[in-house]
C-alpha cells in the first residue's frame, strides 16, 4: 500500500536525480570550472584535485546537510503546530540557536567532554530554549495558537535575540565582526571539520522526526483527535520538538541563520504530492539538500568573484513564498 500510488515513485526518482545533479554541478562549477572526473583523477591536475576535495566537496556536502536538516525540521514543525508558516527561522528558533553559538564564541566556552561539539551543543540548547519560550508565550497569548499569533511571537523573539547578538558583537573587538558575516548564513570556508561536526546531529535529529512520521499524520487533525487514535501525544510532541531543535541548532552552528528553507521546501512538496508525512519528510529532506546546494552555487557565482551570503538567496525565494502561503491561508479563513 505504501508506494502503491505511482506519484510517490516519480517524486522519489525526480528528487534523487535532482539531488545528484545539484551535487554534481555544485562540485564542478564555481570561479573555476572543474570537471567532476577530477575527483578520482589526482594525476592530471593536482591543484584542481585539492580544490575539489578540500574546498568544494565539504562546502557542497555541508550545504546539503544544512538544507536537508532545515527542510525536514520545517516540515515537522508545520505538521506538529498545524501551521504552514512555521519554520525554524519564522519561529525565532534559528535566532535562539545563533545566540547560543555567539555566546559560545563570545565567552570562549569550550567544554572538554564535548570538544568540537561544544558549539553545536550550545547552539541546540539555544534553539530548544527559545522554542520552549516562544511556544509557551504564544499559548499564553492565545490558547488556540492561531497561525498569526505564533509567527508574531517568533518575530518578537527574533528581533529581541537579534539585538542581543548585536550587543555582544558591539561589546567585543574586531574578531567578532566576522561573526556578522557568518550570521547572515554561509557555508563557505568551513571545511570537513564542520561536516563532521553536524553530520551526527543531522542523523539523530532526522531519525527522531522520521520515527514520528505516522504520529505527525495523526496530529495534523489536532492533538485531541490524535490521542483518540492512540497516539502518545505528549511523547511524540517532545520528540519532534527535540528533533527539530537538534537539527536547527546544528545547522545554525555550521552555517549561521539561513531562512525560509524549512518553509519553501515542504510547501512545494505538499503542493505536489500531498501532506502524508511518510513521504513529505523524506522528500523534504532530499529536496532541501538540493535547494541549498543550488542556492549556494548561485550565491557564489551570480556576482563572482564577490560571494553573497546564502541567506540572501534563500530569503529572496522564501519571502514571496511566505507571502503567498499567508495570503492563501487568510483567504481560506475568510471564505
Amino acid at each position: 500500500m505504501y508506494l502503491k500510488n505511482s506519484k510517490y515513485i516519480y517524486a522519489y526518482i525526480a528528487s534523487i536525480a535532482l539531488l545528484l545533479c545539484s551535487l554534481w554541478i555544485g562540485v564542478s562549477f564555481g570561479t573555476v570550472n572543474i570537471p567532476i572526473s577530477t575527483l578520482w583523477d589526482k594525476a592530471t591536475d593536482p591543484i584542481a584535485y585539492s580544490i575539489l576535495w578540500k574546498i568544494r566537496m565539504p562546502r557542497v556536502i555541508l550545504a546539503a546537510i544544512v538544507g536537508a536538516s532545515l527542510a525536514i525540521a520545517g516540515a515537522a514543525f508545520q505538521g506538529l503546530l498545524k501551521n504552514p508558516l512555521a519554520d525554524p527561522y519564522t519561529l525565532g528558533i534559528s535566532s535562539g540557536a545563533s545566540v547560543g553559538a555567539v555566546m559560545t564564541i563570545f565567552l570562549g566556552i569550550s567544554i572538554p567532554v564535548l570538544g568540537a561539539f561544544t558549539l553545536p551543543v550550545f547552539s541546540m540548547a539555544g534553539a530548544a530554549f527559545t522554542m520552549v519560550i516562544v511556544l509557551s508565550f504564544a499559548r499564553l497569548v492565545d490558547r488556540s495558537m492561531k497561525m498569526e499569533t505564533l509567527i508574531l511571537t517568533g518575530i518578537i523573539f527574533s528581533s529581541f535575540l537579534g539585538s542581543c547578538i548585536s550587543l555582544m558583537v558591539a561589546l567585543t573587538g574586531e574578531e567578532l565582526r566576522a561573526i556578522i558575516g557568518w550570521l547572515l548564513g554561509s557555508v563557505s570556508m568551513r571545511g570537513w571539520s564542520y561536516v563532521n561536526m553536524v553530520l551526527p546531529f543531522m542523523i539523530i535529529g532526522t531519525s527522531i522526526i522520521w520515527f514520528n512520521r505516522r504520529e505527525l499524520n495523526a496530529m495534523i487533525y489536532g492533538e485531541e483527535r490524535a490521542q483518540y487514535l492512540g497516539v502518545n501525544v505528549k511523547r511524540s510532541k517532545y520528540m519532534i520538538l527535540a528533533g527539530g531543535s537538534i537539527l536547527t541548532g546544528s545547522a545554525v552552528a555550521a552555517s549561521g541563520t539561513i531562512g525560509f528553507v524549512g518553509l519553501v521546501v515542504p510547501h512545494m512538496i505538499r503542493l505536489l504530492v500531498g501532506a502524508d508525512h511518510r513521504h513529505l519528510l523524506t522528500l523534504s529532506f532530499l529536496n532541501g539538500a538540493s535547494l541549498l546546494v543550488i542556492c549556494d552555487l548561485v550565491s557564489r557565482t551570480i556576482i563572482s568573484p564577490v560571494e553573497l551570503p546564502i541567506g540572501v538567496i534563500t530569503s529572496f525565494i522564501g519571502a514571496p513564498v511566505f507571502a503567498y502561503i499567508f495570503f492563501k491561508q487568510r483567504r481560506k479563513v475568510v471564505a
Binding site: 498545524k82 504552514p84 497561525m147 499524520n217 495523526a218 487533525y221 491561508q329
Partner: peptide, 16 residues
C-alpha cells in the same frame, strides 16, 4: 485542519 490528506489516508489512520 490546515493540512489534509486524502480520504483514504485519513481513514487508514484509524488503524494506527
Amino acid at each position: 485542519s490546515v493540512f489534509t490528506n486524502s480520504v483514504y489516508d485519513a481513514v487508514s489512520l484509524g488503524r494506527y
